[in-house]
Amino acid sequence: MIFYHVNYSKGQLKIQQMAFVLVALMIFFALVSLFYFSIRVSNLEKSAVELREEEAKELVRKLAASPEFAWTATDCASCIDLDKVILLKNRKSYSGFWNLDYLAVERVYPSKQGECTRGSYPNCNSITIINKTGAFGTPAWSYVALCRHEFAKSSYVRCELGRIFAAGKGIQ
C-alpha cells in the first residue's frame, strides 16, 4: 500500500515537472514573439508614415499641374509659370479657391533674398499665395521648375529650380 502510494506520488511529480517545463517554454516563446512583433509593427508604422508623406508630395505636384500654375508655353510636366503665380498673389477672388492654409513657391537655385512683390519680382526668393494661420505644421513640398519670360536682351524663356509648399485639408 505504501509502495502504491509512493508510485502514485512519483507519477504526479513527473506530471507536475512536465507541466512546469511546458509553461516555462511557452512563456519563453511568448516573450520572443512579443519582441519580434513589436519590431515588425514599428517598421509597419514607419512605412505608413512614409507612404502618407509620398502621397502628400504627389498631391502638391498635382497642384503644380493645375491650370492656375501650369507652364503651357512648352511641353513641361514639372514646370510652373512664375508670372501667373505672382499675379495670383493677393488676388482676392482666389482666396478660398484651394482648401489650403498655406501655399507658397520658393526658388532653390539660384537663390535670392526676400518675399516677392510686384516691384521686386523677379529678383526675389519666394511668393506666398496663402498664409492663413501660423499653425499648419510642416507643409508638404515638391520640386518644380519655375519658368518665366525674360526680357533682358531679347525675349526668351528662363526656368529655375524651385519648390512648391502646401499645407491644409486639401493636402491631408
Binding site: 508630395k57 510636366a77 515638391s142 518644380v144 528662363r158 526656368c159
Partner: peptide
C-alpha cells in the same frame, strides 16, 4: 519620387 521630381525639374533649368 522626391529624387525623380528633383531630376525632372532640374533638367529644365536654363
Amino acid at each position: 519620387r522626391e529624387v525623380y521630381q528633383f531630376l525632372e525639374s532640374s533638367m529644365e533649368y536654363t
